[in-house]
Amino acid sequence: MPADGLRLEDVTLVRGTRRVFEGLTLHLTERRIGLVGDNGAGKSSLFRLLCGLDRPDAGRVRVHGLDTVSERRQLPRHIGLMFQNPDDQIVFPTVAEELAFSLTAQGAPRAEARAEAKEFLAQRGLADWAARAVGELSQGQRQQVCLLALQICSPRTLLLDEPFASLDLPSQARLSAQLAATEQQVVVSTHQLDTVRDFERVLWLADGQVRADGPGPVVCAAYADDVRARAEADSQRHGALHA
């Protein structure tokens, strides 16, 4: 991954009266990066900043050298976001049309895009998916379509927001294999620590700050220990109140 990577420089993000981030600085260049932390820690907000969906109130965000505010229109060629719920992302009724839309959105002629989408599926052993109705696919299959729709455009970075949240074990295994096979930089936000435990870098976000940043096994273990400690403390308080 090029040295420029993903950069946040002294970023502040405010929503209403809440400061989601204040003075956040990060430089993300590793091929596989995980984001862990409680709900509300800032994981999805970080993704929205990187994709240009949110503007920083202070500081600067750059994606492979592009400023996410002044050069926002160029971002889709370099970074793609997969939402937690595939139904929030899928637009077209068939798989081939959904993949082709990713290409036409970047200026490809419709017929050319549709042919490329079919070839892209065939190369992955999914030729029979081209004409399938998205509405008839399982949750895991729709999630797979969303990832394919990002990959067909070959952005340098993929951001995946809770991609394993609603998948059964076989679907999780297929998605993990799909991610392992991709050459792009992948950043995964998840509550399922096993899916990022072996990543070269994991960030633990807490209250808009980086609580820990390091190898996956180390950071995941620290976060899991913290969750257990808080759960035990809550249990003890609950017991004392009812003693």
Rank of each mutant, 00 (worst) to 15 (best):
D225K: 08
G107Y: 14
G125Y: 11
S171Q: 13
A243R: 03
E22N: 11
V69A: 13
V218N: 00
I90Y: 10
L150P: 14
L13T: 12
L150W: 04
G40E: 09
Q143G: 05
Q106N: 07
D4S: 10
V95S: 10
D88Q: 14
A115C: 06
L75W: 01
C153V: 15
A105Y: 15
A173C: 08
A117S: 07
A131H: 10
V145F: 07
E183W: 04
R132G: 13
M82H: 00
T104K: 10
P93N: 11
C51F: 08
S154G: 02
A173S: 10
L75S: 00
R156H: 14
L203P: 00
F21L: 08
H242G: 01
V95L: 07
L160M: 06
Q141W: 15
E162M: 02
R197P: 01
P76G: 09
S102W: 13
Q209V: 05
R110Y: 09
R32H: 12
A224I: 00
L103T: 10
Y223F: 02
A3L: 10
V63I: 08
A96M: 11
V20W: 05
R228E: 09
R60D: 08
L137R: 03
V227A: 03
A131F: 09
V69Q: 11
V14K: 13
S166D: 02
R124I: 14
A117Q: 04
F101V: 13
D225Q: 10
L8Q: 02
V145K: 10
R60Y: 09
A130K: 00
F101N: 04
V63N: 10
L26W: 05
A173K: 15
R18A: 05
R114E: 02
G34P: 05
L137K: 02
E97V: 09
K118H: 04
L150S: 14
L81R: 00
A117Y: 05
T17H: 07
D234A: 06
A181M: 04
A149G: 14
E30Y: 04
L203W: 01
G80T: 01
Q123P: 03
Q139P: 05
S189G: 15
A206G: 00
L53A: 15
V218M: 09
D168C: 10
R72T: 08
V210I: 08
Q89C: 08
M1H: 01
A133Y: 14
L160N: 06
A206N: 01
P109D: 11
L35P: 07
N85K: 02
A229S: 05
Q106R: 15
A206F: 00
T25Y: 01
G42Q: 12
F120P: 14
S45A: 15
Q151W: 04
S45W: 15
A105W: 15
A127D: 13
L126E: 09
R211E: 14
V61Y: 11
L103F: 12
L28N: 04
L26S: 06
L53S: 13
L75P: 01
G37Q: 06
